[in-house]
Design a protein around this nucleic acid. Sequence first.
DNA 1: AATATCCGTATTTTT
DNA 2: TACGGATATT
Length: 688
Amino acid sequence: MGLEASYLRDLNPAQRAAVTAEDGPVLVVAGAGTGKTLTLACRVAHLVDRGVPPERILLLTFTRRAAREMLTRAERMVGNGVTGRVWGGTFHAVANRLLRAYGGPVGIRPDFTVMDQGDAADLMNLIRGELGLGRGERRFPKKDTLAAIYSRTVNAGVRLGEVLDRDFPWCRDAKDGIRDIFDRYTARKRERNVLDFDDLLLHWRALASASGVGDRVAELFEHILVDEYQDTNAVQADILVAMRRTTRNLTVVGDDAQAIYAFRSATVRNILEFPSVFPGTNVVTLERNYRSTPAILDVSNAVIALASRRHEKSLWSGREGRLRPRLVTCLDDAEQADEVCRRILAHREEGIALQGQAVLFRAAHHSDVLEVELARRNIPFVKYGGLRFLEAAHVKDALAVLRILENPRDEVSWFRVLQLLDGVGPAMAARLMRTLGVGGDPEASPIRRLLADPPAVPPSAGSDYERLRTAVADCAGGDESDRSDLVPPAVQVERVSRFLEPVVTRRYSSPASRMRDLEQMEVLAGGFVSRGRFIADLTLDPPVSTGDLAGPPLLDEDFVILSTIHSAKGCEWDVVHVIHAADGNMPSDMATGDAEQIEEERRLLYVALTRAKDALHVYFPLRYYHRKNPLSDRHSYAQISRFLPQHVQELFERHSTHVDGAPAEERVLSRSSSAGDLVEASLRSLWT
DNA sequence: AATATCCGTATTTTT
DNA sequence: TACGGATATT
């Protein structure tokens, strides 16, 4: 055995087997906290060490953040600056790059723009309106539903009828209309030179499967590595098969117990069937957990043990410590927020920085009350998941202006931009678009017409309109030919912000913080030389948070992470607080349709619990107020999550929040007015 | 008559 | 945030 790289010495035998596996297909089944990231990073380092050119390695991850992290770790191991040449990123980001470079032969123009989910929904809505659907006496699915049906249909490769029957039964009657919308939707994207997220995958598959160019693309890479394989869908699996037609060097890593993206058509079949799709697969299983204490692992194992499909591996902890996780019963959401804040501060007193702590929840709005409480106590936080930077209305407004400059045929963006003008609504916007020639003749130049021969607008819109024209003129480089790249993207964002400022002030609440977001956007744009690249990158890898209730934390400042469980995938913290562990929230009422959905919700709780290294707190509010009137005392009682039955609860240390010495259960009794169901509910919380 | 605007309500999870 | 429905404004 020759000189052994130092990074190999620190691995356990299973990890080392995965890292040093021979060429050919490798499946690494890696339980939570078993050093999966380390193993993958090591394998990249090992391949580079063995002489594989870094630019011939493709590392596919679930987020760009994950790719960056792994390549940084690999860089520390080999330390010669070459890992920067590895192709790393999400399936979507890599598709974007490959299609621009090699897509010609399959009919892709290199200057396509990328539409995100929201844009796709907007285009669906536009078409829905054109076809006059939804104006009849029967209800017709709304834009977000249409986008969801479409995405599910193409990603799962299942016929529309089946998708409707299985997942959207209430939309079955609208099938004909939906088909018409989908027809127009695909035609429209093609005309406008636009790809949505699903197209990126579909066209990559087509590109890789094509003869000729497909071979060239497949041969770009000697090795392909895929993280979070349990959360890939059928199209992504097809892409890998097509990309591995000449060499079979493919390493996939995943854990079927952590599959939480079935709603996006991901299927664990990809993992289960991998060895039969790629015969001769070397299967390595990682079962030793380095992350969590034994007590935390006991609870996590107990939760996943109840899954209907048994999982093969059982995690064991390599760590010390038997401090039990805490299960805390609270009176309500407010008291839960109060208690979480107290525990966060108590841990900080013990020396665990805020950065080492995270609060996890099922749905983005579950942290609303907590966010207010954190702000009140001046505890800084950053929220991941939920309303993102790109979903904020003012950011979409700015992006829409950039989009019409980039692609003057982008009618969705025109429609949005024109309605920003004071006194212009949908009808006036549509008329202006016709006058500018947005929808019609591909040769028409709406930008030129806007500058040279502007249509009349209502007096109220006058000053907005003039500022828009100034911004467009500045960004377009002052004449009709598109010399956009002469004006740096950051300057373009600044010009657009100037147009938007009065609009933002007039239309939105807290305009100051929104203008700060636009400044943030300007900073982001500073890293780009091309507007097109900036827009595509922003769409594929948006910044993760907005919310600045507690002020935007500076990089060197300490802050708590608030995150949806989905966004917490792959992360770990010293202390984890899981809130709203109530039935209806976990599992979500929205996901109790069939057994498979409920199983996914169970795995979601499992993912949340296994993020914790040293301490775990699970909180359960007893009562939920009805939304209608915050002043009224109308409320109902929750049950603890069905995934935490008695014998699992016994693995926790149980607590109730106390105020004036009375535990939450007793205060419910003393405060409540009507007896019967209240007594029953509060008693139930004692033994369920 | 066409639009704008206000208000209350419901909102899963993400590339 | 985005909708539906009601009312206000041009």
